[in-house]
């Protein structure tokens, strides 16, 4: 994968196009996923901002980590993240992804998401409400538009840091490249 994301004018157009049409991966990792159907359907309708669900990681740009992450899910999440294509973004829900949240003393959940995956933004709420999710995604669209959402670059640049942390928790992790 080419790592030199040059900031030309062509990149601005792509950023603009990226923020207008985001495919959100249909993967409910934690308990926050119960608020996604109301956000996607008639009442709050995230598709009017061009954000729609995608079935497979290949077609997805946005990975929502909705709440706590058990170690078993973390392994699958890393595989999913690495299957996704370059301009990809990770958004964490609630305090479980920041410092373990309500399950801080659970032996099976990870405490900080951004040690394993580059996170663009966190949305507050122990299960954020649909309005909060939409507000967060709108802010994400602004970040994408002016090029601040560079999580995938950070992941590329310090790959070692992320891989060490992942192996610390999961033991051996299959690597694709």
């Amino acid at each position: 994968m080419n790592n030199n994301f040059v900031k030309g004018s062509w990149q601005e157009i792509l950023d603009w196009a990226q923020n207008k049409s985001i495919n959100m991966l249909h993967y409910c990792t934690g308990c926050g996923a119960i608020e996604l159907p109301p956000t996607m359907t008639s009442r709050y309708d995230m598709s009017r901002f061009g954000i729609g669900p995608a079935a497979t990681p290949r077609q997805a740009d946005l990975l929502l980590v909705t709440g706590y992450l058990s170690t078993k899910t973390l392994r699958r999440l890393i595989y999913t993240y690495e299957q996704m294509q370059a301009p990809k973004f990770v958004v964490g829900f609630g305090s479980c992804t920041i410092n373990g949240g309500m399950y801080w003393d659970s032996y099976n959940t990870i405490k900080q998401l951004d040690k394993y995956l580059p996170v663009e933004m966190y949305i507050a709420g122990c299960m954020p409400r649909p309005e909060a999710i939409l507000d967060g995604l709108l802010k994400l669209k602004k970040m994408i538009n002016n090029g601040e959402a560079d999580g995938y670059q950070r992941y590329q640049d310090n790959l070692e840091f992320y891989h060490q942390n992942q192996e610390a928790v999961l033991g051996e992790v299959q690597r694709t490249q």
Partner: peptide, 8 residues
């Protein structure tokens, strides 16, 4: 293939 949501 259960266990993905285990928080103890």
């Amino acid at each position: 293939n259960a266990g993905h949501l285990h928080r103890g």
